[in-house]
Simulated scan of single mutants.
Amino acid sequence: MITVNLRAKSPKAKIARLPPTLDTDASATVESLVGSISAATKLGPERIRLTLIDNTRLLPGTLLEKYDLQDNSIIYVKDLGYQVKWATVFYIEYAGPLVIHPLLYHFQSLFYHQEFAHSTIQTTVLNLVLLHYLKRELETMFVHRFSNATMPVLYIFRNSFHYWVLSGVLLGYFVYAPNACADLPPWAYYALVGSWVFAEISNFITHLILSSLRPKGTTQRKIPYGYGFSMVSCPNYFFESLGWLAVVFLTRNWAAAVFWTVSTVTMFKWALKKHSKYKREFAGKYPKNRKAMFPYIA
């Protein structure tokens, strides 16, 4: 049995009823310590994040002895605020384009103040967008495994901006506008649609691989191998970017290019973080020839 000192992570965000010390068994789990803090502070366990003085996070599913805690070790406690399930966030995010694109496409007089015939490209993009986000909703329901069960509820608005505003309003409004997307030669049209289909199927395969590495209800991590993973750590992001690049060339529209650029830069940043985390976590075992997101590049 050891006694640990508890401190609020931020002096400006004090936690009511946080005990200054707590007795715990060094061989207990992080969850048990979180449970004790939850009982004392009346905060839900999902709101509590524990870190050490060097910002090392005490991860759920691990034993306290992993962190070499001693008597009087300091553990910092952060209240993450009201939480919502990650799956719920995804459902809300992806619902934006699924609602906005059909509205912009079908209610022409409301948004463009005229009636006109859409080009083949515009109709195709509508179908591609709907299929893409329907796929994402179904993956959230049946495929994805989340390392964190919840996230702060206010993050819904931040995360939804990308999907509702950029992928929804910006992309949809300018792509479905009158005379926005002229038709392409058949060979180019089918080549680009085929590229999009390839990217979507490839993205789905990588999601299945990632899901198979983590048993349901756990935060276990393994080195991913297989389709795409021989070249990069995050082939799911690479194929996602490739699919939207096909939409850029289909539409030749500046709004599609802006959305693709923002999406790709964001995913590349995520890929760099995951790549770095993989190398730290599996030091000496992680394949050295893998790039983060773009094969042979970065």
Score class of each variant (00 low, 15 high):
P186K: 09
L245S: 06
T251N: 08
P224K: 00
W244F: 10
G168H: 09
P235W: 01
S211Y: 05
D183H: 09
S241I: 03
L250T: 03
Y176E: 06
S230V: 08
L210M: 13
G217W: 10
N236I: 04
V232K: 00
D183E: 15
I205D: 01
A246Q: 01
P215R: 08
L184T: 11
Y225T: 15
S202A: 15
G228W: 10
Y227T: 03
M151C: 07
A182G: 15
F239C: 04
M151Y: 01
F204L: 13
H162D: 10
S211K: 06
F174M: 05
P178E: 09
V248I: 05
P152V: 11
W244G: 03
S202E: 11
C234L: 01
Y163L: 08
T206Q: 05
S211D: 10
F157P: 04
W164K: 06
V248D: 07
L210A: 12
L184Y: 13
F249Y: 07
G168K: 06
V175I: 15
N159Y: 00
E200D: 08
W164P: 04
V165Y: 12
L192H: 12
I201A: 15
G168D: 09
Y155C: 02
G226L: 08
W187R: 09
F238S: 02
N179K: 09
W244S: 01
S241P: 07
K222H: 12
